[in-house]
Design a protein around this nucleic acid. Structure first.
Lengths: 172, 172
DNA sequence: ACTTCATTTCATTTTGAATTGAAGTGTCCG
DNA sequence: CGGACACTTCAATTCAAAATGAAATGAAGT
């Protein structure tokens, strides 16, 4: 009668249903992580913890998601670094358990600050450098290209002022 | 004395320098495309056209970027679809030449509308569906999970109202 | 109708990032 | 000390997405 056939690792009857919700939540967050250029396992782990009232150990995460210990270990580390989850070493326990922080901010911030801003900054630099090379090309092209690169620079400036705003808005 | 060793396909002395600028610009835009989850060839083609005062044919693009005809063909189609470039079939000419539109809007809009919004919408739906499954789990977990899913829904709603705003701001 | 040449298509190949898993590290407790 | 256990590391593997390139298509000119 239990519809879930997979990896019933000592979880109670009703637990199976909770597990299916947790797996679905993991899958939803996996998609989102992927959308933002993160490994989907990151999202899956976060999603599972998000849908877990009780903190989970790495072993439980590995079990419930069917991922490898390596992936879980690295994923947990990155999530902790980006402050999306909270590791809790309980008193006399051997294991570390993790719980999801429920704010969106860490996710968004991590993406904006670690991915977007640096890369935008980097390409802005490259364009500045290019502007200087312009002097060495024929006059006709030079003028038009100068205009275009100025335009590209403008985009970058706008993005740089705008992104922190996004962060503020979504971060609350 | 010419520093450029690669694929000098009958381009004049000064042209080599222009070519190097175009290649660098292609590379900058390739990175940006990649950052937004698009194939980097898309960015490269757009970057080349952006740094090209004269419209270019597919053959010229293939030559200058060293990509295959297949990649060029598909890339040009997608760029034209997203209105980032303009195909110009000249009077009695065989070839189609392409020029870059210089606005950022098509790029941003394409990303927001084709990638972000639909996927955000999709995961919002999945979470709504999940909310209904909540009734079948034990009371204690149910309450906490209900709160969390409500929170997740809130994020999605916020994102959905906010993204069109981004579009308007960057799109000008 | 035939040739030529630009372009598209798509089965195959390449590439690179994510994942695996087994060996290694460290730590706790008897 | 030593063995059990939680976790980390990293070389090897997997896998999906992108790129290739040769064959198919199609449009122009003769």
């Amino acid at each position: 009668m239990n519809p879930s056939v997979i990896a019933n690792t000592g979880v109670s009857e009703t637990g199976a249903s909770l597990l299916s919700i947790q797996r679905e939540m993991a899958s939803v967050f996996a998609e989102i992580a992927d959308l933002f250029g993160n490994p989907s396992s990151l999202g899956a782990i976060y999603g599972l913890l998000f849908a877990s009232p009780e903190p989970l150990s790495m072993e439980e995460i590995v079990e419930r998601l069917g991922i490898s210990t390596g992936t879980a270990s690295q994923g947990l580390r990155r999530l902790a670094e980006m402050q999306a989850i909270l590791p809790k070493k309980e008193d006399g326990e051997r294991v570390t358990r993790y719980e999801a922080k429920l704010e969106l901010r860490p996710f968004v911030a991590m993406f904006l600050e670690q991915q977007l801003l640096p890369k935008i900054g980097h390409s802005a630099e490259r364009i500045e450098t290019l502007k200087q090379k312009l002097s060495s090309i024929p006059k006709d092209s030079r003028e038009e290209l100068g205009i275009r690169m100025e335009r590209a620079s403008k985009w970058h400036r706008r993005a740089k002022t705008f992104l922190p705003l996004v962060r503020k808005f979504l971060g609350g």
